[in-house]
Every structure is written in C-alpha cells, then in structure tokens.
Amino acid sequence: MLRYANPANFLRLAGFLIPPLAVVTAGLLAVGLYLAVLAPADYQQGETVKIMYLHVPAAWLSMFVYIVMTASALGTLVWRHPVADAAQKAAAPLGAGFTFICLATGSLWGKPMWGTWWVWDARLTSVLVLFLLYLGLVAVWQTFEDQGRAARAAAILTLVGVVNIPIIHFSVQWWNTLHQAASVFRMGGPAISRPLLWPLLIMAVAFTTLFLTLHLMAVRNEILRRRLRRLSILEASAAETPIATTGGFADALARN
C-alpha cells in the first residue's frame, strides 16, 4: 500500500491495470445487460422489475464509493499519502454520479409501482443526504485553491459523514416504510429467485469494475494535472531568472 504512495509507482500500476479492467467491464456490462433483458418478468411487477438491474448495483456502488473515499481520507490524515488525496478527489464526483443513478432509477421505478415519484421515507431520505454529502465534497474541492488544504478538509468531512452509511443500510429495518427490505444480503440467503438473481450479481460486478476503471483513470489524470501545474510553475519561474537553463525542464516534460 505505502509503496504506491510514490505517484510514479502508482502511475505504472494504473497504466498496467486500466486496459484489462476496461475490457472486463465492457464484457460484463454486455453480458449482464443481455441477461437482464432475457430475465423473466416478475409476476406482479411485469417488465418494470428490470429497472432493478441498474438501480440495485448503483445503490451498492453509492455506498462502496463512500467507503473507498473514507479509506482514502484516512490515508490523507494519518499517512499524508499523496495518492490518497487524488483518490479522494477522484471518488467524490463518481460517487455523486452513482447516487444520482440510484435516485433517478428508483424514482422511475417508484412511479409505476408505488404510484409516486418520491416518498420521504427513511431509505430515500438517507440516500438523498448521501447525495448532498457528495455534492458538498465536490464543492470543497472546488472552493479551496490549495489542494493540500482541500484534501484535509474533505477528509474530515468524509469521516464525519460516514455515520450516514450504517443509517442507509439499516433504514429499511429500523423504519418499516414503502421501500422494501434487503433481499440479497440477508440471513437465510437471497429472497430473489435464481433466474433474476444471476443477472443482478453480474451487473453488480460490472458496476464495481466500471467504478475501479473510472477511478484509476481519474486518479491518474489528477496526478498528471498536478505534475503539469508544478512544471508550468517551474518553467515560469525559470523564465524570470535568466541564469537557469530551460533545457532541464523541457527534458522533464519529455520524460513525463
């Protein structure tokens, strides 16, 4: 883990992992969506049950991304891990995106099934709070000019907001409202029949690899953006002092 605190090591690892991950993601998404289309319709819900294949993986990912961000926040605060800063920054918009997919598909599913786009029940409200937390974190990254300070501010806020994750998970057990209880990860095995469960699990894995691919790419971009910024500052300061030779910086640019 600490070996990849060196951004150069991380860039090598990311360059090695991104192409196969992208291929696996595309394959899993194709297979998962194909199986989801073929999956039998529910006897009560009809074809609308297929919204589940986007809604449920997005909901899992919305929490998984927050946990990844919490681990990165610990990396920032405890070890001052430079890649952890970039990992936090890259995860916030991705988490907001997955949470938005979860809320939007849930709303589209709710209209035919519950007869309403939105209800203020515990599960929906706590996921909405998660979405607002992600937006707040994105706002932090945009507001602070000094990215080191932004990383520490975002890390503290992430750690405070992590109390919401167990609330989301248990909200359907503590408050019995419109949203159904957990039916995959529960005592006594899944309550979904096999033909509907398989495409769901494949889609969940596909969403996870999709996140990993996008996250690695975004972290790599963030590291390169910082390097570019530093190099342009160096070059600007070199241009001001005629003693320094600019050749060294051009070499450095070429190496990167």
């Binding site: 709070v129 937390l133 507001t143």
Partner: peptide, 13 residues
Amino acid sequence: LLMAILILPLCVP
C-alpha cells in the same frame, strides 16, 4: 455558503 452546504445535510436527523 459552503459551510451551510456542508453542514445542513448533517442536521437532518
């Protein structure tokens, strides 16, 4: 404004 955006979601409970 940033402070309100960060803290108001946490005030929901």
